[in-house]
Design a protein around this nucleic acid. Sequence first.
DNA 1: CTTTCATCTGACCATACGGTCAGGAAAAGA
DNA 2: TCTTTTCCTGACCGTATGGTCAGATGAAAG
Lengths: 210, 210
Amino acid sequence: MRDPVRPSRRNEIRQANEALILQAAEKVFAEAGFGGATMQLIADMAGLPKANLHYYFATKEDLYRRVVQNIFEIWLHAAEAMDDASGPIAGIGAYIEAKMEISRRHPDGSKVWAYEVMHGAPVIQDYLETTLREWTAGRTALIRKWIAEGKMAPVDPDHLMYMIWATTQHYADFGHQIATLNGGPLSDAAWAAAKESVKAIILRGIGALE
Amino acid sequence: MRDPVRPSRRNEIRQANEALILQAAEKVFAEAGFGGATMQLIADMAGLPKANLHYYFATKEDLYRRVVQNIFEIWLHAAEAMDDASGPIAGIGAYIEAKMEISRRHPDGSKVWAYEVMHGAPVIQDYLETTLREWTAGRTALIRKWIAEGKMAPVDPDHLMYMIWATTQHYADFGHQIATLNGGPLSDAAWAAAKESVKAIILRGIGALE
DNA sequence: CTTTCATCTGACCATACGGTCAGGAAAAGA
DNA sequence: TCTTTTCCTGACCGTATGGTCAGATGAAAG
């Protein structure tokens, strides 16, 4: 009997190729949208024959769905720092930092998500209605608690979340526009300044005290 | 000689059909992206034969370019209220209100712009480098002036603009996600609350005093 | 070695796409 | 009315796309 924990050579091949394809697909979907992306382009970027893609992912939609799910899970994890915090300055500050860092490291995933939602979320509507809804309810409850404890001003928690999502993801989704206005991609220092600007305005804007 | 001011019957036809096609195109491009949109879909939505579209717009790209230019000009005009103001509370407040209203009235245009920028601005790169750059420089100069006059906190004007753009356009681009979390489209009251929330957080966040 | 099964791939197919074109219909001018 | 110009459209074309499949290749099991 084979040990399922220690991956066999075959499992290694499968995992490596799926990761390779997903990485290429994320980039192509981000650059061209679902309709503009072609399996041939993704195959070329992954360095594999097109037929091989269809061996691992039955259809273009399957592949796209996996890419969207990836970024969604990354975002969900970003809020863990928020839950452990005792107040908005630490909690929301850490969440903003985490989201900004994701925008910097995974701009393509962010774009694919934006593309998906903008077009009516045809493949992840169920996620929005279940996982994201519950997730948001939990975080807005935490914000309401902080408001009740007098740790921040009585702002609408939903609109606050939208502002955080919008602003942090803007640095990924509209990175090209920002780079053009900036005269080139943001440097390390410029990214740090962006983080601080966003944190400063939002934390002051919600009257965070602790 | 024909009077060029009073439009002839032919000019009426041309103007009406171009507007009809542009309206349909904006919707289809917003729903499907450039690659996912088809001339046939746009034609069906406009109620015209596909060949008729090619009579008014030579190529799909020409049509797309016109749609993108439309929303860009609408946005540029939205800042006029800002220029006339004597301080950030009136100026930035009015600008946010105007941008929010556009997100509500022209969500499709906003999505097409987002799509275009996200994919590297292939058809409006020159606009970003010229018109938008100058426009932004003018507005950040105004903000710097207000800061120098002690009318607001010394925030980075560029990142403030990004935050305003990101947040206001989020209500258009991610309107579907917001509607899902909200349990349906935003009501008139909910839109008003959103406007007030955004204005309150940002104006407090930049320490606006006048 | 033999068998088995996952992995891989060139060649192929039906479909749908953007765009063209010849010629008809309608409006404007003479 | 006759001519000219614009407007309109069904039919068509070359191309590119997502997806299929038979069969080759390579790894593991007996």
